[in-house]
Structures are given as C-alpha cells and as structure tokens.
C-alpha cells in the first residue's frame, strides 16, 4: 500500500476540500473534556487526536429517536417515515467503531433486512484515524488494533508532524482525488500499547463465559451498580430499542418512534401484567456481559464487544467490563486447576 502524507498544518485544508464534495461528520469539542461526532461547519474545529466520543457513529444510522411511521387518527391512515441515505463522509473514526458497525449491519440484515437502518447506511465514505490506547481501551483483546484499516475507504495513521494516508477504495480515491497528498517513505509506526487486556481470546471465552453463569461476580457487580443504563446507552454495538407513540396536541395524528433502550433498565423485560424476566441487577449485568462475550458470539463467531472502553469510562460507579470478564477467566482456570 502506497503511503501518502498529510502534514498537521494541512489537515484543515484537507477537511475543507472534502467538505466541497460531501457533508462531513467528524469529532469536535463538545465540552471541557469531551469530544463528539458532529456535522462539520468549521474545518478548524475537527479534532483527530482524541480518546473516544461518548456516542459512536451508530447514532447516524440508528438515531436515539427514530420515526417509523406517521399516522392520522381521523381516517386511520399512515405513511412510512422518510428515511434518507446518510450520504456523507465520516471522518476521524476509530477502528473499533468501524468494527461495531459491522456488527450492527449484521443485526439489521440477518433474518429480516431492515429498510430504515440499511437505507441510512448508504453513501458513507469512511475515513479512519489511528488512536492511542488510553486507560480504558482494550480493543486489542477482541482483535481490533488501533491501525486496522478494515472497512475504511481512507485511513490516517498518526505519525511525526502529521498523518500517513492510505487510500484504500475507489470511494476513497474519489474523495481524495485532486487534493495534493505527497508520497512518503516514512514507515507506518508501531501501534500504541493497550493498558487493559482480557486474558483469553474470544475462541476460549465462549466456553469460559458459558461456565460463568453462576459466578459470584454478577452479584458483586450488582452491589456497585445503580442500574442507570449508561453502559447500554454508550455502547456502539447495543442496538435494542423500544417503540413509543407520540400524539400531537390536536389529537389528530402523530408518530410511532423507536427509542434506544437498554437491558440494564428494569422495564426492559417487563410484559403486560407486570412480570419482569430479569428483575435483579445481577441478572441484568450478566445478560449485558454475556451478550457481548457469549450469546452473540456463539451465533456468529465474533465477540459483540469491540473494546472501546465506553461502558467502563462512562460508568459513574467505575464498573469495568474487562475486570468482570477477567474474573470469570481466573475463576474458570482456578476451577479447572483444582478439578485436574
């Protein structure tokens, strides 16, 4: 792969250039310490050196509030929601967030292929950027490295005084064509080291997690958990939703909308009549973690966690998914050792 060079002082010009071709969404400052993916108006506001955004690119394809249909109460007619392709450049995306979209693509294509999500997915040009693992990232443990270019059209690797640019697809060539990116003989630097690790690969985790159903870690975690559901809401591979009706004040019509939901919230499994199938926080924590490392990986062979570290970074109680999984591993190994 031919490497090109984008000097730090030309990033702004590069962003301006691609903005002429397509709408661009990229990380930008959202608060004192935080960065969020937003539509770019000022090319100078784009931040490529960041740890993580609170919400991933998921929000563009599966918006937190997503209209499904509009209805008219007088004649009981309805019209499907207008859904348009995103048709934009997603700039400055980390490899784990791109990997998360593969998982969402799977969910919204398997069984029944869903128009709403899959339509929005169209027309996206992915421009990735490498990241420096912080105290929460552990994507290396689920096979996703900071320099992985899979699924990207263009990839920027941080190097001295700028970025090494790989143009990977035709869409990438189209986007960058006409912008002067000189070739470079700089070698791709070694990716940064992770500070967090899950001690076993996914292939072994299915078995470990399968044996961890009654591990005390679920009860212990539940004691520290307030059940606020933040871990679900910030997860890039969580896709659960609820459906709500909204009626206008004239009571003449309204919309049916889906809104993000989370398996950590108590009402998640509640059926009419009041039965709650996962009433305790321990059962809910178990479901959340098993879903990432067993239930969906049993089905697909891929872990449903991409190691972004959001659920841990944004948990006010400091509950760490890595610690939970590692605890399951060490208890499993202890048990295996005593059994021999």
């Amino acid at each position: 792969m031919e490497l090109k060079f984008l000097a730090s002082d030309r990033v702004e010009a590069f962003v301006s250039y691609i903005m002429q071709k397509k709408t661009v969404y990229a990380p930008q400052r959202a608060g004192k310490h935080s960065v969020a993916l937003k539509k770019v108006a000022d090319p100078g506001a784009v931040v490529l050196d960041y740890a993580r955004t609170m919400q991933s690119v998921k929000k563009f394809f599966l918006p937190p509030r997503d209209e499904l249909l509009q209805f008219n109460l007088a004649d009981q007619s309805f019209a499907p929601a207008e859904v348009k392709p995103l048709d934009a450049v997603l700039l400055g995306i980390h490899s784990y967030d791109r990997a998360a979209i593969d998982r969402l693509d799977y969910n919204f294509s398997q069984g029944h292929a869903e128009r709403n999500y899959l339509t929005r997915r169209e027309g996206v040009v992915w421009v990735g950027v490498s990241f420096e693992p912080d105290e929460f990232h552990f994507s290396g443990s689920v096979g996703i490295r900071p320099h992985d270019t899979e699924g990207f059209d263009v990839f920027l690797t941080r190097a001295r005084d700028g970025y090494l640019v790989e143009v990977l697809t035709n869409a990438g060539r189209e986007l960058t064509a006409g912008f002067d990116l000189p070739a470079t003989d700089q070698a791709k630097p070694q990716p940064g080291h992770f500070h967090q690790h899950i001690f076993l690969p996914q292939a072994k985790l299915n078995e470990v997690m399968g044996a961890s159903y009654n591990n005390p870690v679920w009860e212990e975690t539940a004691e520290k958990c307030v059940g606020c559901g933040s871990c679900n809401i910030v997860c890039p591979t969580c896709y659960c939703f609820n459906v709500e009706e909204n009626v206008d004040i004239k009571v003449s019509g309204g919309t049916r909308e889906r809104i993000w939901d989370g398996c950590m919230l108590r009402e998640f499994t509640e059926v009419a009549g009041g039965e709650v199938f996962r009433g305790g926080l321990a059962e809910r924590q178990r479901h959340r973690v098993m879903r990432k490392f067993k239930y969906l990986s049993d089905k697909t062979g891929h872990p449903w966690c991409v190691g972004c570290g959001r659920c841990t970074a944004y948990c006010t109680a400091g509950i760490s998914i890595v610690s939970i999984v590692n605890r399951c591993i060490s208890d499993y190994e202890k048990h295996a050792a005593t059994a021999v």
Binding site: G31, I233, T316
Partner: peptide, 22 residues
Amino acid sequence: VEPTSAVCVECKLKENECVYEK
C-alpha cells in the same frame, strides 16, 4: 406511560459531559 429510568440515560443520549467529571 411514566418514565422510570435514571437521568443518566438522557445525559448519555445528549452526550452531556458527566457532572461527576466536573
């Protein structure tokens, strides 16, 4: 329908910086 989930859900949806971080 009465909402029952914590305020945190709405903060995370809006990408508010956590008050505890402040």
